[in-house]
């Protein structure tokens, strides 16, 4: 089986400071990988490099495209990369307002990606938007409301619908449950798990919440000071951490 994503020695520097360095891994279709670490560990920098939002200083990010097979997304042209960004990739931001158009209705938000790839039948677009509202558990009566009228959890679910409507194969998530109430988090995690499984999505989830990765991620990568200090099966890394930093991280979680 060809990996969906092959990351080879990715490095990003901010002047003399290391954003992330020497990161390599393969992600296979259907796999969900978590990246954990404290603030400043380079996990968000890495995610933004992978998603094409930042240009890495070194390394390769090889994505298995539908049309041409494995292609290095670092060296591909910007139009190609942006096309991937609205078709095969999705990016779920921590703050829904970074990933939504707040002045556009829920239906318009979901429809944008469809229209961006050439859908121009209003009825079809609206039907798909309503179908997706239903899948993320938002009442279809809210289709013409703007996200400003939605709660934080609803905004986040809308952002997910907007991202998944074009049937992407790889989803990048940056702290998808950050800033939400615990009960809202649980519902969102449940939803994400279902969608990942149903659509056979591969996902890379950056978070500092170990409970989130235990529920969602098959594999885990632990980052510290821009480097990967430990990687492996999620429950193995959490239950039998090998690296000093991971042990500290795991033992710092409050038991409920």
């Amino acid at each position: 089986m060809t990996p969906l994503l092959q990351v080879k020695r990715i490095e990003k520097r901010y002047g003399a400071r290391i954003g992330c360095a020497d990161v390599s891994f393969d992600l296979y279709p259907g796999e969900v990988m978590g990246i954990v670490g404290e603030s400043g560990s380079g996990k968000s920098t890495l995610l933004n490099c992978l998603a094409g939002h930042l240009e890495p200083d070194a390394g390769q990010i090889i994505f298995d495209t539908r049309a041409d097979g494995p292609v290095d997304t670092v060296t591909m042209s910007e139009p190609e990369r942006r096309m991937l960004g609205r078709t095969d990739w999705a990016f779920v931001h921590q703050h829904a307002r970074d990933g939504l158009r707040m002045s556009v209705s829920a239906g318009g938000n979901i429809g944008e990606r469809l229209m961006a790839v050439g859908d121009c039948h209003y009825g079809d677009i609206r039907d798909k938007a309503i179908d997706w509202l239903d899948r993320v558990e938002i009442d279809e009566g809210r289709v013409d409301d703007r996200p400003t009228a939605f709660s934080g959890g609803m905004q986040q679910r809308l952002q997910i619908a907007r991202n998944l409507v074009t049937g992407p194969r790889l989803v990048f998530m940056d702290e998808p449950t950050g800033g939400l109430d615990v009960s809202v988090q649980a519902r969102l995690l449940d939803l994400l798990r279902g969608l990942v499984r149903e659509m056979g999505l591969s996902a890379i989830i950056v978070t500092h919440d170990l409970a989130v990765v235990r529920l969602l991620a098959d594999r885990l990568m632990v980052m510290k000071d821009g480097r990967v200090v430990e990687a492996g099966l999620t429950d193995q890394v959490l239950d039998d951490p090998q690296h000093a930093y991971t042990q500290l991280l795991v033992s710092s979680v409050l038991q409920v």
Partner: peptide, 17 residues
Amino acid sequence: LEEYGLMHVKLYEDISQ
């Protein structure tokens, strides 16, 4: 890059409202 999906979003909003 000829990314004109947004233009249709405006028309979509028109029809929906």
